[in-house]
Every structure is written in structure tokens, then in C-alpha cells.
Nucleic acid binder design. Structure first.
Length: 557
RNA sequence: GCGCAAUUAGCUCAGUUGGAUAGAGCGUUAGCCUCCGGAGCUAAAGGUCGCAGGUUCGAUUCCUGCAUUGCGCACCA
């Protein structure tokens, strides 16, 4: 077997399947292969002997013993031990050489840990998509971190990923934005105009109005009400949007496409989609409104598409948008939403079904609200500006790395306390420093080595790697080997936090190793070189893992 | 009232195709610097995985009921 080019799980799976096949049995779907928690259970364990059909042999333990003999005969070089345990578990211990080969695999493969899970399928991640009516706040930041990390992880897992921001530039909120700016402008010009009750009250509205007045003077007062409002809306949205784009760029959240809702309406895609639904008999007129028969696809009730006053609901353009996505050939559509929109999922899935697709093509990631604190005291999240509530302000205070890592250290659908003082702290309260420190420590060691004239060996010679024999060596090697498993888990479950947990574990292994084993001060030059190679492999995996989260891997701290 | 989610150590949380004695950090306690960065490491204490049933060789994981908490239930966005 070619154990030297495979990850442990891949190797074990192939060897086991071959052994099962050789014995004339078929691999059961329920069989699992996993790294056991307890070291005495070997490096990899399988329940295959227990879940094989009864007719395959007398009892689980006997089947396990047959497999044991088979494996020892065929893979003696890579297997140090095969044990039958408990009710029929098969515990495999891989040879030291196999684990040591992990260093070479990492150093030779620039994409170590990458997966072919996605098989090149087209996936789209739509995230943030906040209405451009004000600056992004901390909650949007969490959505941005999750969406962006998801895109990075899915790319690494073999998907062709596109990222997109859906711009709600049509509808009531936008009219209200225009009106809010217009009223502020008039007030600046000395007109006594009452501010609309549901208008946007943030200071940024006044700033926009002031800028318009600075550029145009009182000229707008002579315009028609409609023209002035339209102008104020355009100016307001453009300025706010520019701010959003800037904040996202600083936050390292990339959107390849900014998709305009207005363009959907103007180009007739919305009307065409509604007509299509009607033609299929899935939309109908009632009480002067147009309804979508979403209850036929599992939703609680039917939903309005066009109100009796003739205006479209947001749901109508949302359906059209997803029809457009489907038309662009995405196999997987991922929408990142605020968790308070969870009630919206059944109707959106119903829409996808009505458009003729498996509703599973749409995966909605819910992102819970962020509780912003300072020293345990909650910071009010009002619409007023001034406190540290915008994403930009928070990033300026705690840094992008710390903010992103914290957002990605928890399941997205769980409440999160974001304490500004804790996130600034450089301790395990704030794991980003723990992981980054591990990377910086290795860099520091490599600097020291260079200064001492010690070069990293160009090839990871198995004879050198054979010197990596301690318990800490093996723990580190196994952790490196497991990177691909973490990537696949994160991609499969659309959960970036698995990468964070993996990195905290790997960093912990590194710190332990560092404390336990000297590298440069060791007598034996061969052992020194072997350890340098191992640490470079760890550094590369740390850097790649951090990159999947959009977090910097620093040279020094 | 209906629906969705959550409930794991004192605190904050991991634990996804059901696996062997349930994990991490913080906090607490006791240790580790003549040595490459102590922003680190080691160890201890700490649990009826909300409660009660069920499914099976085996359940924190799957099913049912109940309790508590949060969110959602518009011709709102």
C-alpha cells in the first residue's frame, strides 16, 4: 500500500475495504473509522466487524480476528499493530514511519489538507446583504466573518465558490432613506420640517445632508419634492454603500458580485418569475393580492407576492433572485441570515422547490445576535451613533484578527458575548493570540536558526524523520494528519468553528512540544534538523488554517 | 396557541453519519524559568450530558412526551 502518500484515515479505509473484500464480504454503509480518544485503542479504530451482516461470520469478534490476520498479512510495513477489542472493535496502530511521513506530505503538498468533497460543484455564498440604510454593526460583522470563512473553506474543499452581496436598493426602506436625508437637508436650510416618525435618525444621515448642502447649497429647495427625494436617496445610498464596502474590505470579507434588487425589478425578472409561478398554478389571485402557494411545499401558510395596492413584497423579489441564482447554475446556494429570520426559511425552501429544485440546494446559515459588552457591562445597541457599535469602530479597537477569530470560535447559531476588554486581552480568554503565538514562536525559532547558520533541510528524508520518536512527536504528527478531517467536517457541516477548534488543539500541541523538547540547543544535528522540519510543517498548517478563517499568521508578536 | 432552536463542569462553550472510562478554555488549587519568546507548560479538583420513557450489542448523539429559556408566527423589511 502507498501509505507514504496518504493521510491516515484514507490509508486505513483503503486497507480495511480491501481486507473486507478479500474475505468475500461487502463494506457495510454503517461502518465507521475514527481516531479513538484513548491511546490504548490505537491510532484508528473501526466498528466494521460489528456492523457486518450476520451471515458474514459467526460473531463480531471472529470476524474482527479474520480481518486482523488479513491486514497484518497485506500491510505489514505501515501497521505496527492490529488488535481486536471489546465486542469486536478493530484497533489499528500505524507504524512510526507512517506518522513521520506526515511531515513530508505537508512540506511537499502546497495544498495539504485540501479536499475534493465539492467535486468542482458551483456553490454560491450570499452574506451580509444588509440594507444600505446605515453603517454595518457588530452583528453584520459576525455574518461577514461566517460567510467569508465559509467561502474560503468550501474553496479549499473543492467547490467553485462565488460570493455575493444582495443589495436591497428598491422598496420602502430606500424611500425612507431618501426622505430622511431630504428632511435633514431642509432642516439645515432652515425649513421647519418635522422628521418622519419611522425615519433613520442616525447622525450619519445628517452628515450626508450636510455634505449635499455643502456641494449644492440650497439649490434642492427649488426642485420638485420627488426629484429632491430621489436625489437624496441616490446620494445617501451611494455614500452609505461606499462605507459598507470599505468596512467589509478592512474586515477582509470579499464579495465578488454586488447584486442589485432594483436591477431584478427593472429588468422584469421579478414579473417573469411571478408569471412563471402562475403558469405552473403555484400562484393565485385572492382578495386583490397575488399569493404563492407555499403551503403546498411544507410552509405553514401561503404568502403574498403582490399586495392589493399593487406593490411587490420583498418575498417576491427574493424568489426572483433565487430563480436567477438557479439560472446561473449554482448547485449549492448558501444564504447567511440573521437568526431572527429563521421563520423565513420554510417559505424560501418552498420557493426553491416551486422553481423545480431540491430544496436542499438552498442551505440557510443562521447567525445569532452578538451581545456587545465592555467589562461585562452591556453596551446598548441603539440606532443612535456615537458608542462603539459599528463594525468599523469595533475593528479599530480590537483588531480584525481578534474579532474574526472570536466570531468563528462558536457555532454561528448560538448567542455570542463580545466583550471588548476580553477580546483585547492577550490570554486564553482570547484564543486568537494562543494560535497566532504558536505560529510566531516557530517563526522566531527559524529566525534564530538562520542567525546561527542552520538551514532547514531541503528534503524531508525519512532517515531524518525517523528521529521523531517521542510521545509529543507522535501527538503533533497525528494532529497534522487530522487537518484534512477538520476541513472536511467544517465544509460538510458548513461550520467554520471546527477549524478554530482544530487550530487551538494544534497550537496546544505545539506549545507543549516547545516546552518539552529543545530544538536548536539539541546536541545531535540530525535530531535538530528533524525537529526543524516538523515545526515547519506545523507552521504551514497553522498558517493555512488561519487563512481559512481570514486571520493573519504573524511573523512576530 | 403554533413553529424553530437551545439545555453538557462554578462560568463560557466543543462534541454530525450512534461507539469503549464525556472534552477544552476560564476560574480555583498545587507545581515548572542557570535552557530556543513564561503571551508558555504540567497536575489536581469539578458531571445523573434539563426530566421521563422508547429504539439496540451500545444513546450526550436517533424517536416521543414534559419542563425551562430565546426567537419567530404581517398584504413588515
Amino acid at each position: 500500500m502507498g501509505g507514504s502518500v496518504m493521510r491516515a484515515r484514507t490509508f486505513v479505509e483503503a486497507a480495511l475495504k480491501q481486507a473486507v473484500h478479500d474475505l468475500g464480504w461487502t463494506w457495510p454503509e454503517k461502518a465507521t473509522i475514527e481516531a479513538p480518544k484513548r491511546p490504548e485503542h490505537g491510532d484508528m479504530a473501526t466498528n466494521v466487524a460489528m456492523v457486518l451482516p450476520k451471515e458474514a461470520g459467526s460473531n463480531p469478534r471472529a470476524r474482527a480476528q479474520a480481518l486482523q490476520e488479513r491486514l497484518l498479512a497485506s500491510c505489514a510495513d505501515d501497521l505496527a499493530a492490529v488488535d481486536v477489542a471489546g465486542p469486536g472493535f478493530l484497533n489499528l496502530t500505524l507504524s512510526p514511519a507512517f506518522w513521520q511521513g506526515t511531515v513530508a506530505r505537508v512540506l511537499q503538498d502546497a495544498n495539504f489538507g485540501a479536499s475534493s468533497l465539492g467535486q468542482g460543484k458551483k456553490a454560491q455564498v450570499e452574506y451580509v446583504s444588509a440594507n444600505p440604510t446605515g453603517p454595518l454593526h457588530i452583528g453584520h460583522g459576525r455574518g461577514a466573518a461566517v460567510g467569508d470563512a465559509l467561502a474560503r473553506i468550501l474553496r479549499f474543499a473543492g467547490y467553485a465558490v462565488h460570493t455575493e452581496y444582495y443589495l436591497n436598493d428598491a422598496g420602502r426602506q430606500m424611500r425612507l432613506l431618501g426622505l430622511s436625508v431630504w428632511v435633514r437637508y431642509q432642516q439645515l436650510c432652515g425649513r421647519q420640517v418635522p422628521f418622519p416618525e419611522d425615519g433613520y435618525q442616525g447622525d450619519y444621515i445628517g452628515d450626508i445632508a450636510a455634505r449635499i448642502r455643502q456641494e449644492r447649497g440650497d439649490a434642492l429647495l427649488a426642485w420638485s419634492e420627488e426629484d429632491a427625494r430621489e436625489f437624496c436617496y441616490q446620494e445617501g445610498m451611494n455614500e452609505i454603500l461606499a462605507g459598507i464596502r470599505h468596512d467589509l474590505e478592512v474586515f477582509r470579507a470579499e464579495h465578488q458580485v454586488w447584486f442589485s434588487e432594483k436591477s431584478l425589478v427593472d429588468s422584469g425578472v421579478v414579473e417573469a418569475t411571478l408569471a412563471d409561478l402562475q403558469a405552473k398554478g403555484l400562484a393565485y389571485e385572492k382578495d386583490g393580492a397575488l399569493w404563492f402557494a407555499s403551503s403546498r411545499f411544507g410552509d405553514d401558510k401561503d404568502r403574498v407576492l403582490r399586495k392589493s395596492d399593487g406593490s411587490l413584497t420583498y418575498f417576491a423579489s427574493d424568489i426572483a433572485y433565487h430563480a436567477h441564482k438557479i439560472g446561473r447554475g449554482f448547485d449549492l446556494m448558501i444564504d447567511v441570515w440573521g437568526a431572527d429570520h429563521h421563520g423565513y426559511i420554510p417559505r424560501m425552501k418552498a420557493a426553491v422547490a416551486a422553481l423545480g429544485r431540491d430544496p436542499e440546494c438552498l442551505q440557510v446559515i443562521l447567525v445569532q445576535l452578538v451581545n456587545l459588552l465592555r467589562d461585562g457591562q452591556q453596551i446598548a445597541m441603539s440606532t443612535r451613533a456615537g458608542t462603539f457599535e459599528t463594525l468599523a469602530d469595533v475593528c479599530a479597537e480590537v483588531g480584525v484578527d481578534a474579532a474574526r477569530f472570536l466570531f468563528l470560535s462558536r457555532k454561528s447559531d448560538a448567542h455570542l458575548d463580545f466583550d471588548l476588554e476580553v477580546v483585547k486581552r492577550q490570554s486564553m480568554d482570547n484564543p486568537v493570540f494562543y494560535v497566532q503565538y504558536a505560529h510566531a514562536r516557530i517563526r522566531s525559532l527559524q529566525r534564530k536558526a538562520r542567525e546561527a547558520g542552520v538551514a532547514l533541510p531541503e528534503v524531508a528524508d525519512p532517515a531524518l524523520l525517523a528521529l521523531l520518536t517521542t510521545a509529543e512527536d507522535k501527538a503533533l504528527l497525528k494532529a497534522l494528519d487530522a487537518f484534512g478531517d477538520a476541513v472536511e467536517l467544517a465544509a460538510r457541516t458548513l461550520s467554520p468553528h471546527h477549524i478554530s477548534y482544530y487550530l487551538m488543539d494544534l497550537a496546544g500541541q505545539l506549545h507543549r512540544y516547545y516546552t518539552e523538547h529543545p530544538v536548536l540547543s539539541v546536541e545531535d544535528a540530525g535530531l535538530r534538523d528533524a525537529r526543524l522540519l516538523l515545526l515547519e510543517a506545523v507552521r504551514r498548517v497553522l498558517a493555512r488554517g488561519l487563512d481559512l478563517l481570514g486571520v493573519d499568521a504573524p511573523l512576530r508578536m
